[in-house]
């Protein structure tokens, strides 16, 4: 297993604030890795350290087998970056910015450039100052995706895109995965990470609190169950792993830890099941729980 990114015990302070507080992060080569956390958790700071824009106070960071602070220019030849806040030069057109950034990275794929412009419905002739936030982001995304690089570093790339364009973006990322590229995708949009990512790391106040595949993370989460039984439920409330039970006659509604599901279902069957709906945990719930527990 090779790693495109491996970070351990990274610390970065800005005056009294500890933006990164012993962060560990590994991204495997060829995977789409979700980097999830609320605003201010340290996602952008981590990315900027990885890009050599900020210098870490301590800890180690390796990017494509190089040191992001010392081997900056050589590493940047092999990656493309979409910043969270895309600001364009007011009097340069989108097309000019795409060409500039692409050429600086060592050339861009003309066919993909044209194809992406069409799919994202972006007019490259408009000046930077006239683009909306979403369109500025599209400029940076098109520039990044039409470069032939090994690693894509995307910092909340869809925060200004409408749902239609977000679907286009997800298509594009899936294509990148098929091409064998590694993607680090930071986001606080949970559905996006859920739809796209092979593995996810969750960051909170400068630390990774959880990391794993979607399947692994679901073990930590609860399934919601709603059932109508033949007789009033008994004993369910006392089973381990059951939370927020609401019983009303023969109807019952509760949440259960995913790894305790088996025992709870047996108990339900004993009572006679008429209807049953269960909802898998969404990343959203997982996410909310993490932050509620921590409070």
């Amino acid at each position: 297993m090779t790693y495109a990114i491996s970070v351990s015990d990274l610390v970065k302070t800005f005056g009294p604030t500890r933006a990164l507080d012993g962060l560990d992060l590994t991204v495997r080569t060829g995977e789409v890795h979700g980097f999830l956390g609320p605003n201010g958790a340290g996602k952008s700071t981590t990315i900027r350290v990885l890009l050599g824009l900020l210098r870490a106070d301590s800890g180690t960071a390796r990017l494509l087998d190089g040191d992001p602070w010392r081997d900056t220019a050589a590493l940047h030849r092999r990656l493309a970056y979409v910043p969270g806040d895309v600001n364009l030069w007011p009097n340069l057109t989108g097309g000019e910015v795409i060409d500039l950034l692409g050429r600086l990275r060592g050339g861009l794929n003309e066919k993909r450039r044209a194809d992406l412009l069409e799919r994202f419905e972006l007019d490259p002739r408009k000046k930077g100052r006239t683009y909306s936030k979403g369109n500025r982001q599209k400029v940076a995304v098109v520039a990044a995706l039409s470069s032939d690089v090994e690693l894509l570093v995307l910092d909340e790339p869809t925060s200004g895109l409408d749902p239609l364009m977000e679907a286009v973006f997800q298509e594009c990322i899936n294509e990148e995965r098929e091409r064998g590229r590694t993607v680090l995708l930071s986001s606080h949009i949970l559905a996006e990470v859920e739809a796209l990512c092979d593995r996810v790391s969750i960051i909170r106040t400068g630390k990774i609190v959880e990391t794993g595949t979607m399947a692994e993370l679901r073990h930590l989460t609860r399934t919601s169950i709603a059932a109508e039984l033949a007789s009033p439920p008994n004993g369910i409330a006392n089973l381990p792993g059951v939370h927020d039970l609401k019983a009303e006659g023969n109807r019952v509604r509760f949440e259960v830890d995913s790894d305790k599901l088996d025992a709870v279902l047996k108990q339900l069957v004993d009572s006679g099941v008429r209807t049953l709906t269960s909802q898998p945990p969404t990343l959203e719930e997982l996410f909310l729980r993490h932050y509620e527990d921590a409070k």
């Binding site: 097309g95 060409d99 050429r103 600086l104």
Partner: peptide, 18 residues
């Protein structure tokens, strides 16, 4: 509003060009 060029001029390929 006038539209600009859809492509970067050949000179727009280096930090100095920008």
């Amino acid at each position: 509003t006038r539209l600009g060029s859809a492509r970067g001029a050949p000179s727009l390929r280096s930090p100095f060009g920008l």
